[in-house]
Amino acid sequence: MNQLWTYFTTHQDQILGWAGTTVWLAVLPVAVGLVLALPCGWLAHRHRAVRAPLTSGLGVLYTIPSLVMFLVIPDILGTRILSPVNVVTALTLYTFALLVRSVLDGLDSVPQSILATATAMGHTTRQRLLSVQLPLALPVIGAGVRVAAVSNVSLVSVASVIGTAQLGQLFLVGNNTGSLPPVLLGLVAFAAIALLFDLVVLAAVRLLTPWRAVTG
C-alpha cells in the first residue's frame, strides 16, 4: 500500500490528468450511444420487420474486438491513430449496439393493458411513448446503461495499446519497467471509476422512477 501511495504522489499530476481523460472517454460514448439507441430501439419495437435484422447486425458489431476497431476507425474517419476521437467513436458504436437491445427490451416489457388504457384516455402515440412507455421502460434501459458504462471503462484501457493517454498507460508503464505499483494502481483506479459510474447510473434511475420505491 505504501508503494502505491508513493507512486501516486510522485506521479500525481500525470495520473489525475489520465483519470480525467479516462472518465470523459467512457462517459461521452454512453451519452451519445443512448441518444442514438432510443429512436432505433423504438423503431425496432414498433416495426417487427426491422427488429431481427437490426438486433442481429448490432450483435455482430458488438463482437468486433475493440483493438481492431481502434485501428480501423482512423482509416475510416481520416483521423490520427492517437486521436481520442477514435476511442470515442468505437465506444459509441459498442454502446449503441448494446443499448438498442436494452431500449427494445424495455419497451417490450410495458404491459399491453397499460398501453390500451393510455390510448383510451386519448394519448397520442407520441404522448404514450413519452409519458407511459419510456418511464416504465426506464429500469430495463437503465440496467443496460449500467452495463455499457462499466464496459466502456474497461475498454478504454485497451486504447493505451495505440498510445491514447489515459489510465491504461499505467499498465504499459508497469509492463515496460517491470514495476508492480503502477499496474496495481491502474487496477484500483479503473475499478473505482467503474463502481462510481455504476452508482451514478443506479442513483439516476432511482431518482427518475420514484414510484418504484413506493410500490416496492
Rank of each mutant, 00 (worst) to 15 (best):
N2A: 12
L4T: 00
T6G: 00
F8V: 01
A19L: 15
W24T: 04
V32E: 01
G33T: 03
V35R: 08
L43W: 15
H45F: 15
H47E: 06
A49T: 09
A49W: 13
V50D: 06
S56D: 13
S56F: 13
V60N: 08
V60P: 08
L61I: 11
T63D: 09
L67E: 01
F70Y: 15
D75F: 14
G78N: 13
G78S: 06
I81V: 15
I81K: 14
L82R: 10
V85P: 02
A90C: 14
A90R: 01
L99P: 02
S102E: 01
L107T: 00
D108Q: 14
D108T: 13
S109Y: 10
P111T: 12
P111W: 10
I114E: 13
L115P: 00
H123I: 00
L130S: 12
S131K: 14
V132A: 06
L134I: 15
L136I: 10
G144T: 08
S151T: 12
N152W: 02
N152E: 03
N152K: 07
L155M: 14
L155D: 04
V156L: 05
V156R: 02
S157L: 04
S160N: 05
S160E: 07
G163A: 10
Q166K: 00
Q169F: 04
T177V: 03
T177Y: 05
G178A: 12
S179L: 11
L180P: 05
P181N: 05
P181W: 02
P181E: 00
V183I: 15
L184D: 02
L185T: 00
L185A: 07
F190H: 07
A194K: 01
F197G: 02
V201L: 04
V201S: 07
L202F: 12
L202R: 13
A203I: 01
A204W: 12
V205K: 02
V205N: 07
V205T: 13
T209L: 03
W211A: 10
R212N: 12
A213G: 06
V214E: 12
